[in-house]
């Protein structure tokens, strides 16, 4: 909601209100990348097209257009599509627990790789780098802004979790995944690569809060360590794909130690509980399905 003089709210412009989810262009736009971005420092004019100024900002092609509930356009074989359809995405401001910024990074020395090549590989082979027992069902078109991917995860104690992520942002040197209601955490993860002082650094940076009190308890009872292991494994696998074996550095900053009790009600969407209920009730659904078939015959 926008506010104008006198504090009266006015709706967003129609161009925003009427947006519908669309497929992103996946970096097809003129995004110059971080290095080029610096070279064009202080250029205040938009990129001209056919002699006419382009009204779109340079980053326009890299952001998702979603403003409503998520839609799963394609369910890959073997994927469980639960807790995603129609859900809103939650940023770190909508979560319950302490807010953390965690950065996992690797330095890829002794390689001629560029940041763009690393991110290209990371996008294309994203699911391969995950630890066993966790599956990322990416869209057929790859990681691109506005795409929704399904996640089937295994938590501590073997608890299964079906959820998803929205590709919030993607350019040639970074991409960001944002979580929906019910996910373990509310927030986003940015995967990026940067050439710095002759070194190439790849990193995953998580900005998050546990979504609800149950997840926050789980994090404190060991899920934080599991999460650290998860991303450390991912980064080591990324390095291995380039034939490099390097240690993963980790930095954790507690941005806000307070709980947001006003968001405790997020527990209603808890995907772990919903997945468990779904799994337990599978025989009942099977019996009911058979009964319906018999009645139809």
């Amino acid at each position: 909601m926008l506010y104008q003089d006198g504090g009266q709210p006015r709706p967003y412009p129609a161009t925003i209100r009427n947006r519908t989810p669309v497929q992103g262009t996946g970096g097809a736009g003129p995004r110059p990348g971080i290095q080029k971005e610096i070279k064009t420092a202080m250029s205040t004019s938009p990129v001209p097209t056919n002699g006419q100024p382009d009204e779109q900002p340079r980053d326009a092609a890299f952001w998702s257009s979603y403003t409503t509930g998520l839609k799963v356009s394609n369910v890959p074989s073997g994927a469980l599509n639960l807790n995603v359809e129609g859900k809103l995405v939650n940023g770190p401001l909508q979560g319950f627990g302490r807010m953390w910024q965690k950065t996992y990074s690797i330095t890829l020395n002794g390689t001629s790789l560029t940041a763009k090549e690393v991110i290209k590989t990371w996008k294309e082979r994203f699911p391969e780098f995950w630890p066993k027992g966790n599956r990322f069902f990416g869209p057929l078109t790859g990681i691109a802004p506005g795409e929704v991917a399904l996640l089937n995860l295994t938590l501590t104690g073997g608890i299964k979790l079906s959820t998803g992520v929205l590709v919030l942002y993607a350019d040639e040197e970074s991409f960001t995944l944002m979580t929906p209601q019910g996910h373990i955490f509310a927030g986003w993860i940015t995967f990026s690569a940067l050439e710095e002082n002759g070194s190439l650094v790849a990193q995953a940076q998580v900005l998050m809060r546990a979504s609800d009190p149950i997840y926050e308890l789980g994090f404190r009872l060991g899920m934080y360590k599991e999460e650290d292991k998860f991303w450390q494994h991912t980064l080591k696998s990324l390095a291995s794909s380039f034939g490099i074996d390097v240690p993963v550095e980790m930095q954790a900053i507690c941005v806000d130690p307070r709980m947001q009790w006003s968001h405790a009600k997020n527990v209603w969407h808890n995907a772990a509980m919903r997945t468990t209920i779904y799994t337990i009730s599978t025989p009942l659904r099977w019996i009911r399905g058979r009964g319906r078939k018999r009645n139809q015959q």
Partner: peptide
Amino acid sequence: SDHYQHIFELTRLNDAIKIYTSEAAA
């Protein structure tokens, strides 16, 4: 701009930050 208002909406920053049309309004 309209574009960045959309980004604030998308990331739900607008839940926590009130956005005004002008400096005078803010």
